[in-house]
């Protein structure tokens, strides 16, 4: 089971890297969503995958008889999911607000915080450095 998850994690990270390298801010946010899933699966897999085992010790026993499922990675993932969900929501709101105020989702055209690209003086204002 682990190799499948490992390949899946690699695939997700590949997809998210592709998305995050795009100029479109919305694609970046989608890439962010994917990479956090990849990180969660990574924790899941590195905690060791078990099937059909209890996560607790039976009553009256001091030691598990059959082995136990590791509950800790799942607790970690649960925390990470909650956090990444809220952060993702914020990122979406930020992207939307940036779109409203800056009238673009193209990260190259967003240069309100920095001086315009000096190499493109001939370009008309607004679309700095874009073909």
């Amino acid at each position: 089971m682990e190799p499948i998850i490992a390949v899946l994690v690699g695939f997700l990270i590949g997809c998210s890297t592709y998305l995050m390298l795009q100029r479109n801010l919305i694609r970046f946010v989608l890439g962010l969503a994917l990479i956090s899933h990849a990180a969660n699966l990574l924790i899941f897999a590195s905690g060791g995958l078990t099937r059909g085992l209890p996560a607790v010790i039976m009553a009256g026993e001091t030691k598990p008889q059959l082995g136990v499922a590791n509950a800790l990675p799942q607790a970690l993932i649960l925390t990470a999911i909650v956090i990444s969900f809220s952060v993702l929501t914020f990122a979406l709101v930020l992207a939307f607000r940036a779109y409203q105020r800056l009238q673009t989702v193209d990260t190259d055209a967003m240069r309100a915080a920095e001086p315009p690209v000096p190499t493109a003086p001939a370009q008309p204002e607004g679309k700095v450095g874009l073909p």
Partner: peptide, 27 residues
């Protein structure tokens, strides 16, 4: 807003890297 987009983008990637690192270290 422009600054925040750049700040948020790179810092969120960093926390994901940190989380992955923690996961692997735990493994």
């Amino acid at each position: 807003l422009d600054g925040a987009v750049r700040y948020a983008a790179l810092n969120l990637v960093a926390t994901t890297l940190l989380l992955s690192g923690i996961g692997l270290l735990y493994g």
